[in-house]
Amino acid sequence: MKRDIELIVIGGSSGSLDVVIEMLKDLEKDFELPIILVLHRLKNTRAYLADLFNRYCVLEVKEIEEKEEIKKGTVYIVPANYHLLIESDHTFSLTVSEKVNFSRPSIDVTFESAAIIFQEKLAGVILTGANRDGAAGINAVKRMGGLCIVQDPKTATMKTMPESAIQILGTPDYVFSPSEMTIFFKTLKKSNYAKEI
């Protein structure tokens, strides 16, 4: 099925750092789809995560700033202790509202918000993790017609998160190992891209 994906959102918790690095390190400069990473982290940690990823990635990885516009070829990290929402003009809105699933950032919050705006042009990815955050979010992606991808629980350090996602979805569009995801992302990149800034 040929789709025009414009945005990839990836949610992960415990064990996901290595997976994300493995996924991102093989994406070349010509990969134009914007990627948003919603990763559970310790609060009050600063932008070190972006530095860490930048050491391994060709693509620019940066922490999101309030009301920044989504640009192609960029990997965005949701800052610690904020939830991320997406506006209809494709800018970011941060909030410090209540934790969801004991988490801020919460994967559900961003996935639900992105699903409303990007609908069938959104790809949601759920990675390894020890709680159920992300299950409702990936289900929202499905309801709005987006593409649902889940890390193969066999390859996950913590299976709860991918298994919860698979359970709520019934059948995800794809269940991939981290390296399969990278290959799949590359097939998406020649479709329509995010809004030209």
Partner: peptide, 9 residues
Amino acid sequence: YSKASIRRR
């Protein structure tokens, strides 16, 4: 107000 935030609230 931010539309996305109001919607969520």
